[in-house]
Design a protein around this nucleic acid. Structure first.
Lengths: 221, 221
DNA sequence: GGAACCTGTGAAGAAAGTGTGAAGCGTGGG
DNA sequence: CCCACGCTTCACACTTTCTTCACAGGTTCC
C-alpha cells in the first residue's frame, strides 16, 4: 500500500486530505509542523509527501530543503495563494509539483499519481500544448524538440496561455497574471509581446488566436 | 445516490426544494443556518450544496467563503433579489452558479446537473438554456457542444436573455444592461444584434421570440 | 381597407480594436 | 563607461465590430 505523509498546520485541511486519500487506499500519516514531519518521513519512508508552504515556525520551503539533503521522496506542494515566486522557489528546491488551495480532490489525486509515476524518473513539471513544451522549473520552452528562446515576460505570457490551452483567456486575466500589482495599463505592451511570441512560434507551433475585445486563445496547430 | 445539502432559513423554501429533489432521487439534507450547514457538509460530504444568500446571522457569502477553505463541493446560490453585485461576489468566492428566486424546478434541476457534471473538471460559472451554454468566465458560448463565435455585444445580449430564459426581458432592461450609461437610443442597434444572434443560433438552438412592443424572450427549442 | 406603428435584415460608413516596425528607456554585465 | 538586452511607448495600417439608414413586411386598431 502507498504511504503518504501530510504536513500541514490546519487540522481541517489534514482531515480532508486524509479522508480523500484513505478512500483511495493510501496509508496516511499526519504532521502539523516541519520538524515532526521530517521525523515521520525519516521513520516511515513514505511514497509521497504533501507539504503546505505556509507552516508556522519552520516554513515549508525550509522543510523541503532539509528533506532534500537526504531524501528523494516525491513532494507535492500545497500553496495557499497564487504566489508564483514561492512556487518557483519550491520547485527549484526539489518539489515535484504544486497545487493551489483551494483545489479539487480529483486534481490532487491526479497530480499525486503523476509525481509517483515518475518517482524513479524524476522529471520536471511541464506543460505541453501540441508540439510546444514549457518546463516551468528551468523556464525553458521548446517547439518540436527545438529550444525556443523566450524572454521572462514572454515565458510568463505563454505559460498563462498554455495553461488554458484551447480556451479564451481574457486580457484582464492575462495582465493580472503576467504583471501582478501593476497599476498602469499594460494592454499596449501585451499586444507587442503577443506579436513577438507569434513570430517565435512560427506556423508550425500552436497559434495564438485573438478574440476581439475579449482576449486570446492558444490552439494546437 | 446523489447527496444534496440545502441551507436556507425559510422552511417553506426548504420543503419545496426537498420535495422536488427527492422526486429526482436525490438524498436531501436541510440546514437552517450557516454553521449547521457547514457541519452537515463536513459530515455528509454531499455532491452539491444549495445555498441561500440571505441567511440570518451568518450570511450566505460568509458561509461560502468558509466552506471554500476546505471543500470544493459544487455550490448553487439561491439569491432572492436580482442583485448583480452580490452574485458576482459569490461567483468570485467560488460559487458555481446561481438561480434567482423565484425559479422553476426545471431550471433548478438543470443547473444542479450542470454544476455536478463538472464536479471533477473545473468550476466555471455557466448559464445554460436548452443546448446553449454560456461560460461567463471565459466569455465563451457553445451550442450543442460546438463553439459559437459571438462578438462582445452579442455575448452580452445573449447573456441577458439567457439569464432570464423563458421569461420576457423588456427592451429597457436589455438596453440598460448591454449599453449601460448610454444616452442615445440603442433600440435600432438592438434589433440588428438580435437579427445577428438569431442567425448564429440557427434553428437547432434556443429561439429568440419577439413580444411586440414589450421585449424579447429566449425559449428552449 | 388603410393608417400608424412595430419588427427584420441587407448594406455601408463610423468606431473600436489589433498587429507590427521602430524608437526610447532603464538595467546589469563586461 | 558603454553595450546588449528586454520592456514599453508610439505611430499607423489593417481588421473586426457597431451603428445608422433604408426599406420590406407584419400587426393592430379604427
Amino acid at each position: 500500500m502507498n504511504k503518504v505523509v501530510i504536513i500541514d498546520d490546519e487540522p481541517q485541511v489534514r482531515r480532508l486530505l486524509s479522508m480523500v486519500l484513505k478512500s483511495r487506499n493510501y496509508e496516511v500519516h499526519e504532521a502539523e509542523d516541519g520538524p515532526s514531519g521530517l521525523q515521520h518521513i525519516a521513520l516511515l519512508r513514505p511514497d509521497a509527501v504533501l507539504l503546505d508552504l505556509g507552516l508556522p515556525a519552520m516554513d515549508g520551503l525550509s522543510v523541503l530543503k532539509r528533506l532534500r539533503e537526504w531524501s528523494e521522496v516525491p513532494v507535492l506542494i500545497l500553496s495557499v495563494r497564487d504566489e508564483e515566486a514561492l512556487k518557483v522557489e519550491a520547485l527549484e528546491a526539489g518539489a515535484d509539483d504544486y497545487v493551489t488551495k483551494p483545489f479539487g480532490t480529483a486534481e490532487l489525486l491526479a497530480r499525486l499519481a503523476v509525481i509517483q509515476r515518475r518517482r524513479f524518473t524524476r522529471q520536471n513539471p511541464e506543460i505541453t500544448a501540441g508540439n510546444l513544451t514549457l518546463n516551468l522549473l528551468h523556464h525553458e520552452a521548446s517547439l518540436a524538440g527545438d529550444r525556443l528562446k523566450l524572454t521572462p515576460t514572454e515565458f510568463s505570457l505563454l505559460h498563462t496561455l498554455a495553461e488554458h490551452a484551447g480556451r479564451i483567456v481574457t486580457f484582464g486575466q492575462i495582465i493580472r497574471r503576467v504583471w501582478p500589482a501593476q497599476l498602469s495599463d499594460q494592454s499596449e505592451a501585451l499586444r507587442v509581446h503577443i506579436s513577438h511570441l507569434r513570430r517565435k512560434l512560427g506556423t508550425t507551433g500552436p497559434q495564438i488566436i485573438n478574440e476581439p475585445a475579449i482576449g486570446y486563445r492558444l490552439i494546437d496547430s
